[in-house]
Amino acid sequence: MEKVILVVVLFICLFTDIKSRKILNIVTLPTIFTGLIYHIIINGNKGLLFSGKGFLVGLGLLIIPYLLGGMGAGDVKLMAAIGALMGPSFVFYSFIYTALIGGVIALLLIFKTRGFINTIKSFFFNLTNLVFFRSNLGSMIIPKDKKSSISFPYGVAIVLGTLSTLIWGGF
């Protein structure tokens, strides 16, 4: 039952995140409550603990990147909803798959936008600065230029990571 709800929620979030770059509260909040209520009905207090831990793990995994401005609140709530519905270990494995998939997507976008050679040059330039001038790193910080930043709807990575967990399970 919870797997069917999860897949439906994931595809709705995938569609809205690609279309409007938003993961809607009208999807995530009811999913959180459904997960909590479902597990309470099935397993009582143990179900509440299971779902509550999943919610907290899902929330905790993405709250720092959100607070640092690296992602939207909808991404955090989606991961919390996945945790409330599927439990703490499932959401943790989903997070691992999500991070790996998100990293691959980010690299592909960087290569596509900036070109492979420029990306490699930039990597080695930054690595050289780090190795040889590590005591002077504070002065090397360059203000972020919004035009040069690359972003993508991270909900795509969350959906693919969670579906990977559904298909292959944990490690």
Rank of each mutant, 00 (worst) to 15 (best):
I12C: 09
A157S: 14
P88D: 15
I141L: 14
G103A: 13
A157K: 00
S148F: 04
S135D: 13
D145C: 10
L48M: 14
K144E: 15
Y66I: 11
S51G: 13
T28G: 05
L166I: 14
M86D: 02
V9G: 01
G54K: 04
T28W: 01
G103H: 07
I141Q: 11
I63A: 03
F133M: 09
V8C: 10
C13L: 01
E2C: 07
P65T: 02
G60F: 05
N136V: 09
G44Q: 10
L6P: 02
G60Q: 09
S149W: 10
A84G: 05
G170R: 08
T28R: 09
K112N: 14
R134K: 08
N136I: 01
K19P: 11
F132L: 02
K112C: 08
G161P: 10
I32D: 03
G169S: 13
P88Q: 12
N25V: 06
T34G: 07
G102F: 04
L14Y: 01
I12M: 03
K144T: 14
L10I: 02
P30Q: 04
V4T: 10
S151L: 11
K121L: 07
P88R: 13
T31I: 10
L24D: 06
T165H: 08
F11N: 08
G44E: 09
I5V: 15
F171V: 15
F92G: 11
L36S: 06
G169I: 05
F152T: 08
F90Y: 13
V131T: 05
N136Q: 15
V4E: 00
I105H: 00
G44N: 13
I105G: 12
I158D: 06
V57M: 06
N129F: 00
F125H: 05
L109K: 13
T16A: 05
L68Y: 02
S148G: 06
L56M: 13
I64Y: 01
G72R: 08
F11Q: 07
A106R: 06
G47P: 10
G161M: 12
L36F: 03
L130S: 01
I167S: 08
N43W: 11
K22D: 12
S94I: 06
N129I: 04
L109S: 04
L67R: 13
L49H: 10
N45T: 15
L67P: 04
I110T: 09
I23W: 00
V156N: 05
K144V: 15
S139C: 11
G87K: 06
G60P: 07
L85G: 00
P88H: 13
F171G: 15
K53I: 12
P30I: 09
I32T: 06
I18Y: 01
S89L: 14
A99Q: 12
